[in-house]
Design a protein around this nucleic acid. Structure first.
Lengths: 111, 111
DNA sequence: TTTATTCATCGTAATATTGCAATATATAAT
DNA sequence: ATTATATATTGCAATATTACGATGAATAAA
């Protein structure tokens, strides 16, 4: 059916999945990396940098903004996007909480 | 077109996106969390635990196995799946390498 | 050997995502 | 006011993902 049955899972599981989606496309990873590098950048940079159409990049930016990972400011005619550091840090923490939940059984290949 | 233009991005960006996909669905997050909790589990547990059909869970397990995050062993009639700790740790490191790349400009809302 | 049990695979239907041209909107410059 | 520039939105077309019933394969029990 292609419809994720969100009601079967906990809010935390849905939240983590939603955040992971931000990184689940190379274009968005590239956008994020560009924002990390420049700390401040305008949309136009991205259209030149990546080989995607302006509409496509605008769409990816919108998704990242909806999730809250980035924020945008109008700067005259152009847009200034940057990472939302507060959200960024909380996402890192959330991922690490999961990553750290591993308990090695001792044997390298336990099964 | 719905077709990700993988050739536009670096292998690292594609790799990260591919790994993020593992966590980009609540069912897979739930499966992973269950494996983290039990350290060793059989497929049947998951079918009872989650409200999804056996075929659906089997499909998600296959994806996680393809990525390398989990590994499975035949245990008589049933299957024993567990986290691949080596891969798990490398994925955590990869994500943190990205997360740590943030350089706060000083102001909370820089743009 | 027949019958359960467990999991994988196939086929299919439905929804989601991706990408872009065309268009809309909004500001800046002339 | 007109034109140029930059970004957002709309409306598709195409591919990807999700879900599940049905079926297959493999082992264990009777």
């Amino acid at each position: 059916m292609g419809l994720t049955k969100a009601d079967l899972f906990t809010p935390e599981q849905n939240e983590l999945a939603c955040l992971a989606k931000a990184f689940a496309h190379p274009a968005r990873v590239a956008i994020i990396e560009h924002l990390l590098k420049s700390n401040r950048c305008i949309n136009g940079d991205l259209v030149n940098e990546l080989g995607l159409a302006q509409a496509t990049i605008s769409q990816h930016l919108k998704e990242l903004k909806n999730i809250g990972l980035i924020q945008g400011n109008i700067e005259g005619v152009s847009m200034s996007y940057c990472i939302n550091t507060k959200k960024w840090n909380s996402v890192q923490q959330l991922f690490n909480t999961m990553f750290d939940r591993i308990t090695n059984c001792g044997i390298d290949d336990c099964c």
